[in-house]
């Protein structure tokens, strides 16, 4: 697919709106789940799929595509929402999210879903795979990139830092890591569960090109993706995205932060209404 040229963030905001809308509709199927995360990462996914990445919706395994790894498999609801918007998954299927026989399981798995490149329910695996894909693409003289989305909770896993050290060692300038710092993990705020700051300093010390942005500011996200895709030297690139859980639905943003939220039956429509109210297109 041709990437949207720069300066068209209004169209991107419409993409982000529709990704959020798809996610909320999927959340309603289960009545609960990882809605806060889907809403916080929608702007990043809109930028990845409608500004930065090279892919063919009708051929998700096209050899020339950019790879997108969802390391935090529970964010599948968000990626499905983007894959639907990208035309890789038919929209009707969102009603099957997490249901028996569905191609859209609660936890993302490569074998189930077109466009899902890895199985990620066990956290901390994505960047290791990305190192291998990055090396493999270089071996094939491919110009494709490998993007890896992972979460601030995953920063706790030793395996993530093994991959971070390795990616710099192998000078993987075709690898773009995106970490969602929503300051939330299973037992509470990530910064309290395991102190990981100063994150930018750590990543730079490991040899990465690092940007830290407001992951819910589309212009900032687009600029960061452009920089990461530009010539910043023979290094892997990390975009640290500070995000707000529930972004776009004020009453969910205000709700006590939780990894797995329950939403009352009548609130789903209110969430859709809130998205409509914030729609800028």
């Amino acid at each position: 697919m041709d990437t949207t040229p720069l300066g068209h963030n209004v169209a991107l905001s419409e993409r982000a709106y529709r990704i959020r809308r798809n996610a909320v509709r999927m959340g309603e199927v289960q009545g609960q789940g990882y809605i806060g995360q889907a809403l916080d990462i929608a702007d990043v996914l809109a930028t990845a799929y409608f500004h930065a990445m090279r892919y063919r919706p009708e051929d998700p395994e096209w050899e020339e595509r950019d790879r997108f790894l969802l390391s935090n498999g529970h964010y599948a609801i968000a990626l499905y929402a983007a894959l639907i918007e990208a035309g890789i998954i038919p929209e009707e299927e969102l009603e099957t999210y997490g249901s028996d026989g569905s191609r859209l399981p609660m936890s993302g798995m490569a074998a189930y879903t077109p466009g899902m490149e890895m199985s990620g329910g066990s956290l901390g695996l994505g960047l290791s795979i990305a190192v291998g894909i990055g090396l493999g693409l270089k071996r094939k003289n491919s110009t494709s990139r490998v993007y890896t989305l992972f979460s601030d909770g995953e920063l706790d896993e030793g395996s993530v830092w093994e991959a971070i050290m390795s990616a710099a060692h192998w000078k993987l300038d075709n690898l773009i890591g995106i970490v969602d710092v929503n300051n939330q993990q299973a037992d509470g705020p990530s910064t309290q569960v395991m102190a990981f700051e100063p994150l930018v300093d750590k990543l730079e010390a490991f040899g990465w090109h690092v940007q830290r942005i407001n992951g819910n500011n589309l212009d900032a996200v687009v600029a960061a993706f452009d920089t990461a895709r530009g010539d910043v030297g023979p290094k892997p690139r990390m975009i640290v995205c500070d995000t707000r859980m529930g972004c776009g639905v004020p009453f969910l943003e205000a709700r006590e932060k939780n990894h797995f939220i329950r939403v009352d039956a009548h609130e789903w429509q209110l969430a859709l209404d809130a998205l409509d109210a914030g729609r800028t297109a």
Binding site: Q30, P90, E92, G98, S99, M106
Partner: peptide, 14 residues
């Protein structure tokens, strides 16, 4: 996909 089914589908346990 048959979306017209009246019976609620079983969903993955929370």
């Amino acid at each position: 996909m048959n979306t017209a089914t009246a019976k609620p589908r079983l969903t993955t346990s929370a």
